[in-house]
């Protein structure tokens, strides 16, 4: 029984780090800033959550502290992604393709 829990935990660890690896790969393959932010924040959030869950399976007595770290990440990660996306858009680093739709730029153009 103990070994089964350990195996599940180690499997979750590998799955989580595999998502982290995909995040790193996507960070290099995506062509522009906002897409990179998307891949970066999503893949790393799920990857780290799965890793923490795997650690919880390997050491059930650490569960409370791992849960605290997981909650913290779940709240802060999307927030920093949002602030970064806003900074990217405001500093004019975002260049969408020719036929790309950009309601935000349109609305800001109206206001100015």
């Amino acid at each position: 029984m103990e070994t089964l829990l350990d195996l599940i935990g180690a499997g979750l660890l590998v799955l989580g780090t595999a998502f982290l690896f995909l995040g790193g790969l996507g960070l290099n393959r995506m062509p522009d800033v906002l897409n990179r932010i998307q891949v970066g924040t999503k893949a790393t959030t799920l990857g780290t959550l799965l890793t923490l869950a795997g650690a919880g399976f390997l050491h059930p007595d650490w569960a409370l502290k791992l849960l605290l770290v997981a909650l913290f990440l779940l709240f802060t990660n999307p927030l920093s992604a949002q602030v970064l996306a806003r900074a990217a858009h405001r500093s004019g680093h975002v260049k969408l393709s020719e036929d790309g739709i950009d309601h935000l730029a349109e609305d800001q153009g109206d206001k100015l």
Binding site: R29, M30, P31, D32, L34, N35, L96, S97, G100, I101, D102, H103, L104, A105
Partner: peptide, 8 residues
């Protein structure tokens, strides 16, 4: 890379 980004 099947992407077509835009802001809505």
């Amino acid at each position: 890379l099947p992407i077509k980004p835009g802001i809505v």
